Simulated assay, not measured.
Amino acid sequence: MREIPDPGASGGEVVVEVLATCVPPYAEEVFSGRRNYPLELPVVPGPGGVGRVVGVGPDATRLRVGDPVWCDCTVRSRDDALTPDITLQGWSSRGDGGARLARHLHDGAFAELMRVPTENVYPLPAEAGHNPARWSSLGVYAIPYGGLLAGGLEAGETLLVSGATGNLGGAAVAVALAMGAGQVIAPGRNRAALDLLVDRFGRRVRPVTLTGDEAADRTAMSAAADGPIDMVIDLLPPAAPSSASRAAAMTVREYGRVVLMGGVGMLGGADLALPYPWIMRNSVTVRGQWMYPRAANVGMIRLIASGALDLDLERVRTFRLDAVDEAVEYAAHGGPFERTILTPPAG
């Protein structure tokens, strides 16, 4: 912890007072280097958060000082509309262009103030300013929401969430149901986490206890659905074997969709091998999705504000910014729907 100069807003930028930011459960893995994220040092870490506008650049036309806002960490370069370079502000980046962005925008959310591109700042309803800690988990839900949008999830469809008992997987279950999914197949090995999903969301969640036997697990997941599985979203973490992703993906129906968003393969191990004839003959769509489009932020804010996605079901533990080390350690032991939140320092 140390003091740095307050950031200022130039053209295309906004300065925000950070009111609350979510500490990812794997933050310790990033900071220790065990999860090999390309952090551009020096960096103020922290992927997005809820704040209050304290300064705007001359080209901002709607934002006002004092507005409660959501700050999206997914920053895209402005000089390529088709394939922009991307950095996750204060967290990660992709390629040389992403690293350049990261070096310029090194003000993450684990601070009192942060400088954010204007297009990454989204107005929030007034209630968010009264409960910023709860609203700061918006970023957790936005990630699977991006995958569900990419796969074109429609109301009434059956979705299988591979990795449903994890942090992002549990969020995917909640978002899918809020979007109107008819039922969600939730496979996992953690029976307590599966029971939590059923207890929280009711009969629209169909739990499946995995055994590690690929063929048997695929059969069990397919049998859990009342009919065909329309879409699969994979959110398994880096330590998961590719066989688990493959077993889930191959439950999808003819003309179904598979969206890959997890970390399988990031730590080495076998690549995901899906049979060419199966993909071709069944006209299956397989696509990757990193994070989410800009409009997903607006969609998530609407889902939460309307009550379709209920944040009151979460267990929130807050830490002051000057206790950030304790917060990182605590977050590593959290489960689904448990949020570790940093708030401004005392005084």
Rank of each mutant, 00 (worst) to 15 (best):
T219V: 08
R64L: 15
E329H: 15
Y37L: 07
V184C: 04
V316K: 09
T219K: 09
D107E: 13
G156L: 02
L41N: 02
P117C: 08
D226F: 11
G108N: 05
A109H: 00
C71D: 05
G227V: 11
G48V: 11
T61S: 15
G170C: 13
F201S: 12
E29V: 00
R287V: 10
D107M: 02
L177S: 07
Y122G: 10
H130G: 13
T87D: 02
G163N: 10
P345K: 03
R294P: 13
G55Y: 03
A126C: 05
Y141V: 01
Y37W: 11
P344G: 09
D96W: 05
G299F: 02
H130M: 10
G97C: 08
L267E: 14
L196R: 12
A244I: 00
G182E: 06
M231G: 06
G8L: 07
S245V: 09
D96C: 00
G265D: 13
G151S: 09
S10P: 01
A225D: 00
E127G: 04
G227Y: 09
P228M: 06
L303C: 11
D79G: 06
D312Y: 01
P132C: 09
P336C: 06
L177N: 07
R103C: 09
T83V: 14
G108P: 05
L274D: 04
G288R: 06
P336E: 05
A172S: 06
Y255V: 04
V252Y: 04
V328H: 02
G97I: 04
I301Y: 03
S242D: 00
Y292A: 10
L105W: 13
V324N: 00
I4W: 13
L274Y: 03
D230Y: 05
P58I: 06
V18I: 15
G182P: 10
R294Q: 15
G269R: 10
G163S: 08
A60E: 15
G288V: 11
P25N: 07
V44R: 04
A323L: 09
Q289N: 12
A99W: 00
G51K: 11
V258M: 05
N120Y: 07
H333G: 15
V298K: 09
S137E: 04
Q289T: 02
G156S: 03
Y255C: 11
L101Y: 05
A186L: 08
V53Q: 09
P7W: 09
N167K: 00
D217T: 05
G98M: 03
E17F: 05
F201N: 09
I185E: 07
A224W: 01
L196M: 11
H130Q: 15
H130I: 03
R34D: 14
R257S: 10
V18D: 07
M261N: 02
E3V: 14
L160N: 12
S93F: 02
G347H: 13
G8M: 06
F337W: 12
R203W: 05
A216N: 02
V258I: 15
L39T: 07
D199H: 13
L342M: 02
G108M: 10
A102S: 15
L303K: 10
P42E: 05
S92H: 13
R317I: 13
L303G: 12
V173W: 08
S245R: 01
P123A: 06
P132S: 12
A327W: 08
R35H: 13
G180F: 08
R294D: 14
L39I: 14
P42V: 02
S10L: 08
L82G: 01
E127C: 12
A172R: 01
I301G: 06
H104N: 09
V23C: 14
